[in-house]
Design a protein around this nucleic acid. Structure first.
Lengths: 219, 219
DNA sequence: CAAAAACCGTTGCATTTGCAACAGCGAGGC
DNA sequence: GCCTCGCTGTTGCAAATGCAACGGTTTTTG
């Protein structure tokens, strides 16, 4: 268990905790880390989530199966990343997604019910953890709302500009680096790759943007 | 204050609490209800949210101003509805939206920091409230994710079908009632109203749906 | 009750988009 | 060095979409 402490500290939940604090908290709400083989199912769509998970080793895929039977990859999580936290907190009866082991991996499961249950309290880490949990959910919320603002734009051009504006606002300059390959960006915006490429060229031709590889400059 | 107890119990935060519990909790984390005149600003975009709010009387509008200066109405909240809960929990420095009094109204402000701060605990409502708060945020999260799934569809037809499927899944039958006017539905899906109307007619003509007013039946 | 406003479906048209196919390019493996 | 493979930009074309406008219906309001 001890071997994963450095990974756990990378999560927003356990940032800046001492070994002792971590040990105490995990003792309180975690089960032993579990190992999975590639392809194993960590959480099945349709089932309730019993606990939230933290990836310790390997890669985990969040996968959605459509009614028509095709799979789409929602997210790929590496060490230190968290999954199913929304489902447990919402007390949802049915998970809308599958969680699969993309490689051999190790995950730690936490039971947030225990966060609240006996109000063991008095222990300050306990309340700090609750605060982190609230912040984690709220930030994910803001992220989704921001993405919605972008996706709500009607044209590809407007989606691109909305996305760029958001990025520029974040870094506070007039240049930023795309965190995506073009293909992934088109996917993120929910548009066709070639149509997006066309629009990017147009924006460049009109002098609205300068694009060099992943460097984007406004003006 | 007492006069708002029935309204407060309509929020997911204070569902099923006795008068005594409510009084104790509010004493612990609320300030006195404040009245606003129509047009007053409850929260200004760009400012940090100091507290979350609950509408007691009247109507409150959540409004987003675009870079170009045009306003879009994000939500209209009535008595018992909550706002700014995401912002305080995320500890965000800047609100992306304005909160305005659409009519003369009364709002109650809560300081969730006090939820955690001294871990007054021992009081069981306290921990239950934390649980409600977590659930509130998580459910909003799920709602947004579901909406994203719909908006991520490329064509208007696919958006409609995705939305209908989600609704049918909720009610568990093959018929449901639209919670929207057509205009609002188009807005919700982020598409042009007339284009949506066209597509709706096509779906009906192809026998995929039956639509009568706000009644939608599959098959 | 009558006027006004809101809502809905329809249509023509210009524009945008998705889709499929192709070619250029660079990284990495053999 | 050569080959493969993945990423990227481009283009032609059919289909989808936004937009504006119109008429009919329902709802609201004075």
């Amino acid at each position: 268990m001890q071997k994963y402490f450095s990974v756990l500290r990378e999560t927003p939940l356990f940032a800046a905790t001492t070994d002792e604090e971590l040990a105490a908290m995990l003792h309180c709400l975690a089960t032993a880390p579990r190992a999975f083989a590639k392809g194993d199912v960590l959480l099945l769509a349709g089932e309730p989530a019993q606990a939230m998970g933290i990836v310790c080793e390997g890669t985990v895929h969040i996968v959605r199966d459509s009614l028509l039977g095709d799979r789409t990859l929602v997210a790929a999580l590496g060490p230190g990343e968290v999954f199913a936290e929304t489902l447990v907190c919402a007390q949802e009866a049915h998970s809308p997604v599958n969680v699969l082991a993309a490689t051999a991996c190790v995950a730690l499961f936490l039971h947030p019910q225990k966060l609240l249950a006996p109000c063991t309290s008095a222990c300050p880490q306990h309340t700090r953890l609750i605060g982190s949990m609230l912040r984690l959910l709220a930030q994910k919320n803001l992220y989704l709302q921001q993405k919605m603002d972008i996706m709500a734009q009607k044209t590809t051009r407007d989606k691109l500009l909305a996305f760029f504006d958001a990025q520029l606002l974040r870094v506070g300059g007039d240049t930023f680096t795309l965190p995506f390959t073009r293909e992934a960006l088109a996917d993120y915006l929910g548009v066709n790759r070639s149509a997006m490429s066309r629009e990017l060229s147009a924006l460049r031709a009109e002098g609205i943007l300068t694009v060099q590889g992943r460097q984007v400059t406004k003006g």
